[in-house]
Amino acid sequence: MKVLISVDMEGVSGIVHPSETNPDRYDYERGRALMTAEANAVVAGVLDAEPTATVWVADAHGPFRNMLPEELDRRAHLVRGKPRPLGMLGGLDERTDAVLLIGYHTRAGGGPAVLAHTMSDAILDVRVAGRSFGEIGLNAAMAGHLGVPVVLLSGDDNACAELRDLVPSATTVAVKQALGQAAAVALHPEVARERLRQAAADAVRRRAQVSPLTITGPLDVEVDIYSPVTVDLATLIPGVSRAEGSRTVTFTATDFADAYGLVLLLVQLATIKPG
């Protein structure tokens, strides 16, 4: 069997502040070490349950170059760097049997929650068929489009609730209780890793009991964007329109894969500054 572990950073135990998640800030090295250690705990749990599994680990935070390759469990395959197909789900395909979302965070506007946002600070909201989706929902539905269930998520308590609302049968591990955007009560990292290892093993064993999140098309998509310049660029894409009098762009996607890909493109457009 093949398992994909997608690892973000904001939902890792002990992390509460951008200084711990930003490569240009002073506490980033501690953050990336904590992130790598949680990934290792989950790899170990998957292999406790399925010793012959092929395990892929997708570095899914920011530049996708955060985890320390030399410190990662040598039994795992590391997906690193960007841009790449399927973004945070790099390595996902129809042969994947289960996806585990580790260190994830709540969508923009979903607080109080630690470091809540959606893809980047440039995206204020993504609505698919009228429902608001953050990274948890977008990635769960993209996996579901390929018939793959998300069986485990870890993060703060609000991130866990966000997945359970979408996939009630999934396993969740709250490694911290959110007090606000940059504050939480966190488990000791070693305790968090112990719980993650056990939860990963349990989730993989019961993967057949978790249904993929399936959203069928065509789909009307609305994306609220912070910068007017990004809205201007987005309207250059065929099929993308500006909602009158707002910073919202809209488009119709044939299926969720098309919606997901275009949202990833909008995130990248937001990095372009006026010439």
Rank of each mutant, 00 (worst) to 15 (best):
L100S: 05
R84T: 13
P18E: 12
D93M: 01
L86H: 14
M88R: 07
D27M: 11
P18C: 11
T106E: 14
P18K: 09
T54W: 00
D93G: 12
T36Y: 11
W56R: 00
L72I: 11
R65T: 13
R95K: 10
V99I: 10
L86R: 14
A33P: 00
D59M: 11
R30L: 14
R75V: 11
E38C: 01
L86G: 01
V42A: 02
W56E: 11
E94L: 09
R74C: 02
D24T: 14
L34S: 03
H61M: 06
D27F: 08
A37S: 11
Y26K: 12
R84S: 13
E94R: 15
L68T: 13
M35I: 01
R65L: 12
L34C: 04
L68D: 14
R30H: 04
R80Y: 15
L68A: 04
Y28M: 03
L78Q: 05
P51A: 06
P51M: 09
T36L: 06
R84F: 11
L72Q: 10
P85W: 13
A60K: 05
E20G: 02
G103Y: 09
L100P: 07
A98K: 11
D27I: 00
N40W: 05
E70G: 13
T36V: 07
A37R: 05
P69I: 04
M67E: 04
A33I: 13
A41F: 01
E94W: 10
H17Q: 03
N22S: 15
I15A: 04
